[in-house]
Write a protein that binds this DNA or RNA. Sequence first.
DNA 1: AATAGGCGTTGCACTGCTTGCAACGGGAGG
DNA 2: CCTCCCGTTGCAAGCAGTGCAACGCCTATT
Lengths: 259, 259
Amino acid sequence: MSQSLDRALTLVAELATGPKTLDELSRVVEVHKSTALRLLRTLESHRFVQREGVHHYRLGTAMFDLANRALEERDVRRSAERALRAFNARTGYTVHLASYEDGEVIYIDKYDSTHPMRMYSRIGRRAPLHCTAVAKVLLADLPDTELRRVVDGMEFPPLTANTITDAESYLAELERVRAAGYAVDNSEHEDFIHCVAAPIRGARGEVVAAVSTSVPKVLLDFDGLLALLPDLQATARAASVECGWTDAQPGRTPARGQD
Amino acid sequence: MSQSLDRALTLVAELATGPKTLDELSRVVEVHKSTALRLLRTLESHRFVQREGVHHYRLGTAMFDLANRALEERDVRRSAERALRAFNARTGYTVHLASYEDGEVIYIDKYDSTHPMRMYSRIGRRAPLHCTAVAKVLLADLPDTELRRVVDGMEFPPLTANTITDAESYLAELERVRAAGYAVDNSEHEDFIHCVAAPIRGARGEVVAAVSTSVPKVLLDFDGLLALLPDLQATARAASVECGWTDAQPGRTPARGQD
DNA sequence: AATAGGCGTTGCACTGCTTGCAACGGGAGG
DNA sequence: CCTCCCGTTGCAAGCAGTGCAACGCCTATT
């Protein structure tokens, strides 16, 4: 639609494969050197490309800045919607989406079992930290210093017979969650409800949200609840992909031994 | 220089702060809606932006693709050059840059203490894995499976009295390196030389190279060598930034408690 | 159910931005 | 000192990009 923009974007894509000279680039888009030069200059002024030496251009830092900022900005709720809705349609059970923010766990989406509609009014509601599966998943990913700070400020009011009522047990529970990759609420919040939750990860592997399903005990016993786990984790993985997650282990090069 | 491209790039930068509608975007660059629409369509055809719902645009996956590909393409040697040259000028000691590739550690750059010239002829030379600081730094970051494979194939010829001569001690040494964030070669390779090395990290926190400084024992005793560590680590950090590294801890959200 | 408003979309004519050309300049190599 | 190779600049012409106004779809309102 826009010729010059189209050419410029082609140049950027070309530069992603490695540094190139002006000549090489002008040949790629089949324009005169001077034309390519002007496009590159504009790209350069926005830090999309930068010069390398005098004869080469390469991608600039704006690409990394923008890509990272955009990843953080990506609306988890929207990204996860498709996967969560599908799980909800498949199983018929209630689905919650929650995220951690400043010491609190907040529900940011919900799909009800009977009416699969978004309850906008509930968005922003805080989840109890000590007795919900989503909170366990989210807190389990916090750095130790921040986790300690949060736990120090927590209270452990017993809500059911199963509620965890002290920090030490809670930290041990988070260890289990970390190792298992999922969390449960075994009727720790309400007597007649139990839940499982799994983490949704972003591009750097960090946990950006948690998805849970809540089932009345009259519909499913605890084993039946756990049987939902594979499907829930697949759902979480699908949502993770939408959030920019890729399989690569952050901080370590992917093992090449199993190719 | 190129008006339409300039506007398009401004739009992209704007979208990095979050999804926007056509109106908002056209107001940002002060053009008619239809003009913005055409720019966005071109950007969309290159997957630089994508629609979110019907009323919003957000950055597309090409940004992430390109940014990641470019990061891998970035020449570590070139990126690290400035920082390494500065360290070399400051201290006067020999500086090595090395990277890991397929079970081997390879010197990819060197700044000599007397003649700060690039020894192109030495590029590609392999470093012994069991007795060099750079190898320790690079192997310490490998995934366990690959590390085991590499160590299984290693030999431990004693070169000095200090050389590590068995796999078990070597793995223990790597644990120390991992914990400390740096490695030493305490005259394990040559009797009269000792070295310290630090990791250079890329955008995802992965170790892309190692920088070391080698000092004759007649010039500096072991404590004197360790005194170089802060400067060397600052150098490694500067080089890391050039390689796209940002402070964020991968896999964990950055602690906000200390702001 | 009908209406109004908001927003994205399209076709068209005009303007001015983009383009290619040719000449210039600086650095490298002989 | 000359030559070659690039990147760079000024200019004129043409066409691509732009703004306008009208259209259509969807949502909200009464």
